[in-house]
Simulated assay, not measured.
Amino acid sequence: MTSAAGTPVRRVEVARVLPVEASVAFAWVADLRTHPRWMVATRLDGPAGHGPELGDRCTMASGPGARRDPASALGRLVVLDRMVVEQLERPSTAASRVGRTRLRKLGPVLHGEAGFDVVPVDVGRCRVVWWEEAWLAGPLPRAVTALPVGLALRVFMHLSLGRLARALDRR
């Protein structure tokens, strides 16, 4: 796959079947305010609206120091990920409609896109596909940074979807 500019796109996907109806899983993955509850070492910095709504903006801080007080996390390995919601389509189990959320990454560390596809399986299960196409913002080219970023994201996404499955299983 290539981008509109002809640059190879490195898409990372992690999927998991969850034991909940698609609309429940969608509520958790589409609402940026819930992400710190299930994403590994992640904190919401700044508002995420009352969403999820198109145009919602937020900054996520992820990394070993992210769960600590933001003032004390300075100097630790924390990646700030500013994003805006650009697509939001709710799923429907009855209509076999896939729910989709797409976010654009605005920097300062990461550029690219990310999203969640929530695929209804049956009344009590759905498949959540988390995907990312991300690379480090300058000075190195996208072709150089997309692979190591993708490898780190794959581990992060796998662990986080496991946490989401456990959180939804407990409710």
Rank of each mutant, 00 (worst) to 15 (best):
G65A: 09
H158S: 13
V155Y: 04
R127W: 00
V9E: 14
G99E: 10
S23A: 14
P64K: 00
T93K: 02
V17L: 04
A134W: 09
L106E: 15
P64I: 03
R16L: 14
V40I: 05
V85T: 09
V84M: 01
D45K: 04
A146I: 09
D122P: 01
R104S: 13
V128E: 07
V79P: 00
R125E: 08
P36L: 05
R170V: 05
V144E: 07
A165R: 13
D45M: 03
L147M: 03
V12C: 09
L74C: 01
V121I: 14
R127A: 04
V118F: 06
S72L: 12
T101A: 11
L161I: 06
A94V: 07
V79T: 15
P47I: 00
S72K: 09
P52S: 08
E86K: 06
A114F: 03
A66K: 02
W38A: 10
V24I: 15
L164I: 05
R97Q: 12
P36Q: 07
R76Y: 09
V84H: 01
V149K: 14
P108F: 07
C126G: 06
M83P: 00
L80S: 13
W130Q: 13
T34K: 09
P139Q: 09
A61L: 01
F26A: 05
A71D: 14
R76C: 07
C58F: 10
A25H: 06
F26M: 03
D56M: 02
D169P: 02
L54K: 02
A48M: 02
V24Q: 11
A71T: 08
V29D: 08
R57K: 07
L140Q: 11
V29K: 11
L151A: 08
L147F: 11
C126E: 01
R33Y: 11
P141T: 01
S96Q: 12
V155K: 08
P91K: 07
P8R: 14
R11F: 11
L164P: 05
R102G: 02
T101W: 01
M157L: 12
V155R: 14
R11S: 15
V20P: 02
L153R: 04
V12M: 12
V118N: 03
L159W: 06
P120L: 05
A137E: 12
